[in-house]
Design a protein around this nucleic acid. Structure first.
Length: 213
DNA sequence: ATTTTCAAT
């Protein structure tokens, strides 16, 4: 279960470098995905697996995660075949990604999830990937994911703190926020809200138009 | 004001 990942825990410097939520995140030509898998059988919900992944050789990290799922590695019995025990088996996956998914990954994730109603996915993101233009396909992809039942959230201080405790070789060192963490998170959360509630933004545009602004 | 982005050299 462990060998397929780089290592179980992420180095402190790596975590900070890749998850820093500054607006100009120069040179981050890698994306990290920290995940927790929980498994529910009947009334019992238990943490089942956790770890982190990094994109590899032209494959976005989300698709790598999907590959593991399809291989039955992370959520065994997800499709109900296999043992009789797997009937009524539910998984919930929470992941924390340094970038939000691109449009293609969003599309493929949504497609995958439509075939696995017993899998719940929650996505936390540190930065928004190619979401500056209002009509960007990445934005549309995020809305598609939302329609597919995925909860998408911008990471805040508590989320970074949790990740530090859970996925990083922190050696009991307490997570120390970088400059602007909170401010950037608030700003990105506002932006994501605009992306996921396009109706409201349009209403504003209409209002401005009516006022001749 | 402008800067970047799951690289490509």
């Amino acid at each position: 279960m462990i060998n397929k990942f780089d290592s179980v825990l992420l180095a402190q410097k790596k975590f900070i470098y890749h998850y820093k939520n500054m607006r100009w995140a120069k040179g981050r030509h890698e994306t990290y995905l920290c995940f927790v898998v929980k498994r529910r059988v009947g009334p019992n919900s238990l943490s089942f697996d956790f770890g982190h992944l990094r994109n590899r050789s032209g494959c976005h990290v989300e698709l790598l995660f999907l590959r593991y799922l399809e291989a039955g590695a992370l959520c065994p019995g997800l499709w109900g075949y296999g043992t009789p025990d797997s009937v009524g088996l539910c998984y919930s996956v929470t992941w924390f990604c340094s970038w939000s998914p691109c449009s293609d990954c969003s599309y493929r994730l949504a497609q995958f999830l439509s075939q696995t109603p017993n899998l719940r996915l929650r996505i936390y993101v540190s930065r928004l990937y190619f979401c500056d233009l209002e009509d960007s396909s990445a934005r549309e992809g995020l809305r598609m994911l939302q329609r597919a039942g995925v909860q998408i959230t911008v990471m805040n201080y508590e989320d970074y703190f949790y990740c530090w405790q859970t996925f990083v070789a922190c050696r009991q060192r307490v997570f120390k926020a970088w400059d602007g963490l909170h401010q950037n998170s608030v700003q990105l959360a506002r932006k994501l809200k605009d992306i996921l509630q396009p109706g409201e933004a349009e209403d504003w545009r209409d209002a401005f138009e009516l006022l001749g602004l």
